[in-house]
Design a binder for these strands. Structure first.
Lengths: 360, 360
DNA sequence: TTGTATGCGTTATCAG
DNA sequence: CTGATAACGCATACAA
């Protein structure tokens, strides 16, 4: 068909005569139809050419004209239309509450980079850290027809949601939490990490070890707490529940937890904070009470964020590889998208001893 | 029309017979056509009903059937198709290098939340912090037909890119950097912040003030540096270029910068780090050299991130409201998307004096 | 209020 | 190798 005159909105009043080479930087993204018209071929031909790599014996004449036209137009394929047609958007949805948390941000960064390398884009949501808000986010992502979803904020013991997620028409992978009932997960070995941290303190002669254990709903934190309990039990130490305090993951939570523990009648000589950020808060609390780390109080964190190594008193921590965790989450999700099955993965952890822990 | 059998690829062999009420949790997202069929109306009717709010005198019978069918199907409108049709995706693209940086993550969080409230989704990219990678990200976002783009990593004095961005078919807003030549920007008053920090130190009697000035290419950092220079000049203090050291924004950069300055033949008695994270690194460097903050060294940061208030020695810093910055960036972008013009905005800053600064 | 027709831009399929 | 066709799911101008 000839070109539709359409709205005739072109304000440039360019001559409609012959070869109209655009002098301005292209104000539009172009369409296959435009390219096809310009190259004197059928749109479907343009489509094919643009998506092939150079065929065995070079481009055909028509193909060259297509390439040329695309170049001139500054053509960018419309992934919306392609997604509609292919029923596949090459987009993954992210549900990441608490994005300011370094751990989440690092995960996000790794996920996006890995996805981009794999030809996928990332639709991000950072809803409040409750399950209903997160499920709302999932709905939105579904409307955008993402090919799969990665979530980091799943609460433990809310299997209702987990089952609903598993029943979704697209695969869902949970990151930063252990294998759940219905969903594949990618996480570090939080249990082992909790053990490692606690055993380190035990081996230093500490017997009264407090724990700043994160929010009750956080699966990763809970596993670290469990590791802590197991390590204590292995040393026949009675679990004193007053030594377990649940707070937020942020610095403020650490400060609060630190004060709570240190104001006990019989305060702990060591504290395990289940994340580094909170550990910094505990450190601040100790200082506020005139206690010196590590002389008066030993302290272990978790995640080994970059900050930890560069504190005035470098923090002993349990290292987890967040970059790898993000990358793996993407890989497993892509596997599922490609018709395979996402497998749960557990990443190793390692204790990094620095200057906040000391023998009694 | 009757349903096309098409590829007959459906592996479930579902009966094409009459009313098939799905007993399973819906494995699909449904389409208007399905709803229409179920409700015995035309798809266009379904479309209208689903997008109206309850009309004046209640729903019609047909409308009720549509609603019912949509409910049963677990229908989610296909925003891809809608976007294609409307030539508007209600999606904004984000180009945010260095997402692990708290400042960027907080900005991202604010942007996403604000966008979501406004009915927009967010496509995120976190490319490496160089302009070519960022432009590549922009290309990708354009292919997804985002309605607008927010960038935080624009390098200063690269007006080539800025002009190309301004010529894009969708509006671009720069966040966290001052008004550029061609692009609207939303930023805090970095210049004033730099002055504030420096004048605070001057007022405490410091005359040799070092600055850990961030990367040379970072526009925000550069403005803070300029504020520093201006404050010094206002006090007739010669600018000693050996006191200006450029590093990365991260903790490691702070450590490096701190050591560089403190190993000077005539080291500064105070340091202004243009971001809090680097300031923490400076603190660590000081400790490593046996210097005490603030007795031997005064220190000011920038941004007043939550961590700063909760350090063992709380950090004096210049507060900027990142949440507001993100929200404003979105508002300005939406204004431009809606046909208006994005206006540059400068947010106020305020000095927050804590415990890392002290009179000589 | 509802139905009809059409197109958004792309691509798979099939025919030439 | 290329052209023609249809369809992805939705929304709208127009007619009924």
């Amino acid at each position: 068909m000839a070109q539709k005159p359409e709205t005739a909105a072109a304000p440039d009043g360019g001559d409609p005569g012959n070869a109209g080479a655009p002098d301005q930087p292209e104000p539009t993204l172009g369409t296959l139809a435009q390219i096809a018209a310009m190259a004197g071929v059928h749109p479907s031909t343009a489509s094919r050419v643009l998506r092939q790599s150079e065929p065995a014996r070079g481009w055909s004449a028509a193909a060259l004209r297509v390439l040329e036209a695309a170049e001139q137009l500054g053509y960018r394929s419309n992934l919306l239309a392609a997604g509609l047609r292919n029923r596949r958007t090459r987009t993954i949805g992210l549900v990441l509450p608490r994005l300011q948390d370094y751990v989440v941000a690092a995960l996000c960064q790794a996920i996006e980079s890995t996805a981009r390398l794999g030809g996928y884009h990332v639709l991000l949501t950072t809803p409040p850290d409750d399950m209903t808000a997160q499920m709302d986010s999932v709905e939105l992502l579904l409307s955008r027809r993402v090919d799969g979803i990665i979530m980091t904020g799943l609460h433990r013991e809310e299997s209702v949601f987990e089952e609903r997620l598993a029943a979704l028409p697209v695969p869902v992978v949970a990151a930063n939490r252990r294998d759940g009932a219905a969903l594949a997960s990618v996480a570090c070995d939080d249990l082992e990490g909790g053990r490692l941290a606690t055993e380190h303190l035990l081996s230093l002669g500490h017997e009264r070890i407090g724990i700043v254990a994160g929010p009750r709903h956080a699966a990763s934190a809970w596993d670290r707490l469990t590791g802590y309990r197991e390590a204590l039990a292995a040393h026949d130490l009675a679990a004193d529940e007053s030594l377990v305090v649940h707070t937020q993951f942020d610095v403020g939570g650490g400060v609060l937890g630190g004060h709570t523990l240190l104001s006990l009648a019989e305060p702990p000589t060591a504290i395990f904070a289940v994340n580094d950020t909170a550990a910094v808060g505990v450190m601040a609390a100790a200082y506020q009470r005139g206690l010196h780390v590590p002389d008066d109080l030993s302290l272990v964190g978790f995640n080994d964020i970059p900050l930890s190594a560069h504190l005035p008193i470098p923090l002993t921590s349990v290292r987890s590889d967040l970059g790898q965790m993000g990358a793996l989450a993407v890989h497993e999700l892509l596997r599922a998208i490609d018709g395979g099955e996402a497998r749960s993965q557990t990443l190793p952890v390692a204790l990094v001893v620095r200057s906040t822990t000391k023998a009694r």
